[in-house]
Design a protein around this nucleic acid. Structure first.
Length: 565
RNA sequence: GCACUCAUGGCUCAGCUGGAUAGAGCAUCGGUUUGCGGUACCGAAGGUCUCAGGUUCGAAUCCUGAUGGGUGUACCA
């Protein structure tokens, strides 16, 4: 249900009927319920243009407004606000349509785009750490959301599998022999051990450097070892994806090395474009207004991050034919992407009609507002963080006596992982956020547990009432009106969240919805004996749609719900 | 130095292309139950939206400047 679009259409019709030859601005949500459901503020803005009193314009619009369908009441207020009330019969009807539809009456876009979402991007030489969390889950949410709304999404996991460090790792892998997979279990330790050998043993170091050259020249033995290393390392990442319910598979991997053959071509094409300049021995692109150039080839002939990104951009635009390419990467790389995007467009690697965006996000901080680290100052491994979340979640539910151990474990996973994800996704991605176990595992406030609790509470209603629900939604009071209307807003929220690549808009909505339901439920009994049948049915239907909306919303965030908590 | 970014009650955060008396949660204080899941709900108190100008009928939101944090700043990714 594209709610706003429909209301805007009614306004537009009124403009036409009133003979106002202007494009009306969009209605906005009413700032408070006394002002109706929606408000139109365009009369003030038109005042100067039409040289008329805004209230006069407002009344002119209202006179032409159709109040027999979607809307049922309109009032002028203050300097020229038009407050709009939705028709409860229409709202009820639309809710029923949503209830009868698997997709909750959320349409697929008529103009689907092919979108590349680049996210996660772990480094194969190291374990995933907390820094990878945000990219992984924000990216996955964006991908799911766009898919749900009808776009054709291509996930791209741009893993770091190339560079000098791999020579060292492979040399070490060969040294310890064929059962390397065992010692690779702790990648961090493996890396440290390899580094240790590298630092103390010059012959090992030489061998490592030799390997780098060998890999790059395509030596089959070295490539085999390298491949083995990548496979194992990727396997570790996949364990994490599994835990996080993130939909990334091997099919989605387009590693750095994938673009190797393209790198010389990127430089050659830039050279033939005439955009390339040599500076201090390096091949650079100087952008107008930028002091710092984009270096695409080092003095020693090696290629850089920017070169690979240009190759990847070209691949995504030309081969994959994407019209929107979203990079879910740390905000600190904003400068880099700004430059690379410009080079890609100016050199024609990417067409003018392709929308390139850097979906940046802030850093995870500890309670004191400092970057999140372990006690000894090291980076926190993502796997440890997730395991701890499950342990902590278990503590909060351990007093449940009617659950078996395996049920508790399953529940703890859903709750713990959900809490970490929700806490992250519920905050405006662009700002840094403070990581706080107590807050995220609380049942109070805008948390996953509050949402899951609300859902489970509704399910418990349906455990008590498992008959057929026959009847229809009747909007009986203000709370029902607001709840029903909130339910219809779902698609508008999703569309905007997708446009802005902003998952927190979904969580804000869901929280508002859940709070509204709790208030509704508190005041409006459903299964109590003094509730007449018609009202009971109507409220059951509203409860059901609320539960479905919460479930769908959380599903898009990759968070599960449970019937019993 | 330059560039980017952020600044909203004690704390953590919203604020939807500028709109009416700036909203939540936590913490504080008070209330609701023979309770359809009280891990809930209701209420109170708490903010000159960092500061100073400007644009506008109208600014937390846009512009300029200042202050304070964060980040980036050519051969790492």
């Amino acid at each position: 249900m594209k709610l706003k679009l429909q209301i805007n259409q009614v306004i537009k019709d009124a403009f036409f009927k009133a003979g106002i030859d202007e494009e009306p601005m969009s209605v906005t949500n009413a700032t408070k319920s006394a002002f109706g459901d929606y408000q139109f503020n365009g009369a003030m803005a038109l005042s100067k243009k039409l040289s008329k009193n805004p209230r006069e314009i407002a009344s002119q619009i209202i006179e032409s407004l159709d109040l027999s369908g979607i809307l049922c009441k309109a009032e002028i207020a203050g300097p020229g606000f038009i407050n709009l009330w939705m028709n409860p019969l229409w709202i009820a009807e639309q809710c029923q349509i949503a209830l009868g539809d698997e997709r909750l009456d959320i349409g697929k876009t008529k103009t689907p785009n092919r979108v590349v979402v680049d996210y996660s991007g772990p480094n194969m030489a190291k374990q995933m750490h907390v820094g990878h969390l945000r990219s992984t889950i924000i990216g996955d949410t964006l991908a799911s959301l766009l898919t749900f709304l009808g776009d054709e999404v291509i996930r791209q996991n741009h893993i770091g599998d190339w560079g000098t460090q791999f020579g060292m790792l492979i040399a070490y892998l060969e040294e310890i022999g064929e059962d390397g997979s065992v010692s690779l279990k702790d990648l961090e330790q493996f890396y440290k051990d390899a580094k240790g050998r590298f630092d103390v043993d010059p012959s090992f170091a030489d061998k490592a450097r030799e390997y780098v050259v060998k890999i790059q020249s395509g030596d089959s033995h070295c490539l085999e070892l390298w491949q083995k290393f990548i496979d194992i390392s990727l396997g570790h990442c996949e364990e994490i994806y599994e835990k996080l319910s993130v939909n990334l598979t091997r099919e989605d991997v387009r590693a750095e090395s994938f673009y190797n053959d393209e790198l010389p071509k990127v430089v050659a094409d830039l050279a033939s474009n005439g955009t390339l300049k040599e500076s201090n021995g390096a091949q650079c692109v100087f952008l107008e207004g930028d002091e710092i150039p984009v270096i695409v080839q080092k003095g020693d002939g090696g290629y850089l991050y920017a070169t690979t990104d240009l190759a990847a951009l070209r691949y995504r635009a030309k081969t994959l034919e994407a019209k929107r390419i979203s990079y879910v990467v740390d905000a600190r790389q904003a400068g880099h992407f700004k430059q690379v995007f410009r080079v890609a467009k100016e050199s024609g690697f990417v067409g003018e009609d392709v929308h390139l965006e850097h979906v940046g996000f802030g850093t995870m901080m500890d309670k004191n507002g400092k970057p999140f680290k372990t006690r000894d100052g090291g980076t926190v491994k993502l796997i440890d963080l997730l395991d701890e979340a499950v342990v902590k979640a278990k503590e909060t539910i351990k007093n449940k006596e009617d659950y078996s151990d395996s049920e508790i474990n399953a529940l703890a996973k859903i709750i713990g992982i959900g809490a970490v994800k929700y806490a992250d996704l519920s905050i405006n991605r662009e700002s840094n956020y403070i990581f706080n176990w107590d807050k995220m595992l609380s049942f109070e406030g805008n948390t996953s547990l509050y949402m899951q609790y609300a859902y489970a509470r509704i399910q418990s209603i349906f455990r008590k009432y498992d008959d057929e629900i026959k009847g229809e939604i009747i909007i009986g009071d203000d709370l029902e009106h607001r709840l029903a209307l909130m339910l219809l807003r779902f698609e508008d929220v999703l569309t905007r969240a997708a446009r802005d690549a902003s998952p927190h808009q979904i969580t804000s909505y869901l929280y508002e919805l859940a709070t509204l339901f709790m208030r509704f439920y508190e005041q409006n009994p459903i299964l109590k004996s003094d509730v007449d049948e018609e009202t009971k049915m109507s409220r059951l239907l509203l409860a059901n749609l609320t539960a479905k909306t919460i479930k769908q919303g959380l599903a898009l965030l990759g968070i599960e719900v449970v019937d019993k908590l």
